[in-house]
Amino acid sequence: MASERPAHAYLPFFVAALAAAGSLACASPALAGPEVLREGLFGARPSPGRSTSPPVARYVSQDGDGFVLDRSQPRAFLKFDDSPEVWALHPQPAPRGDVIYKNDLGEPMLRATRLGGLTIFTPERPGGSPAALSGGGPTLRLPSMGPQALLERLAQASAKATRAARRLIPFEADASPASSAVVADAAMVAAEAVVRMSRRPDARGLLAKLSKVKLVEGRKPSAVLHGSEMRITVAPAEGLAGRPSSDKIMMAAGSR
């Protein structure tokens, strides 16, 4: 039993999601110098005529999409109101002193001007939509996670993926106490990727290739499809940035 193992031992977890099967039957590194960038763009001592933006705030786009942007940490994070996923962003300098924030596929998600203006890029608006500050927001961080909570999160992720695929997709994880939180978050992101794939016109073919999700620790986050097993590698030391995004998982499954 897990309780009999020392704290430093590796804790293997396996979730078959039998409850999910039952429910199915009943229902159909930032760029060098991020602090310099932040101080130059949104610092506490702006030059005359330059506005400041709060380090953590909620914004609403012209199309009504709400999201929280957290720039209070070494890495910037973004979370849309209608999604559980937190996106880890990579800042890159742009013309006129702007900064473009990209996802782990190198695709732009946000553009910040030197005056504090924001433009959000979405699949529906690839050309961008301006966003306005609407108030404060919560800091985007990983919660602490014990073995039992991790098991529950794996079961939830498996159930969510199983409902979307309309067949059992078990989640298996090799996690240590140091990696439990990021493993749990990666599992939910993987389930979100399966849900997104299920909405595509070619969903049947895509999901037919996936029979299991396996989460492991490694040096850098990645997602690779080994046969019918989606292997997701997490890097615990990187926190929320230490797991692949749903976009990267979908690409590994061949859906992008």
Rank of each mutant, 00 (worst) to 15 (best):
P54F: 09
V86N: 01
V183Q: 06
A149D: 10
A19F: 09
A131K: 04
E39V: 05
V189I: 04
A88M: 07
S61M: 00
I232A: 14
A112Y: 05
R153Y: 10
V60P: 08
Q62E: 05
P74Q: 10
A184K: 06
V56P: 12
L240W: 06
E217A: 03
P84K: 05
K248S: 15
I169T: 06
G49L: 08
A203I: 04
G40Y: 09
A173Q: 12
E39K: 04
L207T: 03
K79Y: 04
A253C: 12
G40M: 07
A57T: 13
A159E: 10
R114H: 14
S129W: 01
G116R: 06
A164V: 14
S176P: 10
L154P: 15
S61C: 04
R166C: 13
P46N: 02
R256G: 12
G218T: 08
M250D: 04
V234Q: 11
A9F: 12
L206M: 00
V194D: 07
G22L: 05
L207I: 03
L41G: 14
F121G: 01
R204C: 02
A175G: 15
R200A: 06
P147W: 12
R125M: 13
A30S: 15
F67Y: 07
A181E: 01
P55E: 09
A161H: 11
G135I: 10
P12Y: 05
D82L: 09
A208H: 12
S134G: 06
A16Q: 05
L140R: 09
P147A: 15
H8Q: 14
A132F: 03
P221D: 09
G66P: 13
E152V: 15
L78C: 08
L207S: 08
P147M: 14
K248Y: 08
A208C: 04
L133Q: 06
M250G: 11
D104T: 11
K248G: 09
L240T: 08
A252Y: 03
V36F: 10
L69K: 07
S129D: 06
P74E: 05
P108I: 13
M145Q: 15
R114I: 15
L151F: 15
D98P: 08
P143M: 01
A25M: 09
P55A: 07
M197D: 09
A178H: 12
L133K: 03
S47I: 15
R75P: 09
A175I: 12
E192P: 01
R196T: 05
M251S: 14
V99W: 04
A208T: 12
K248H: 11
P123H: 07
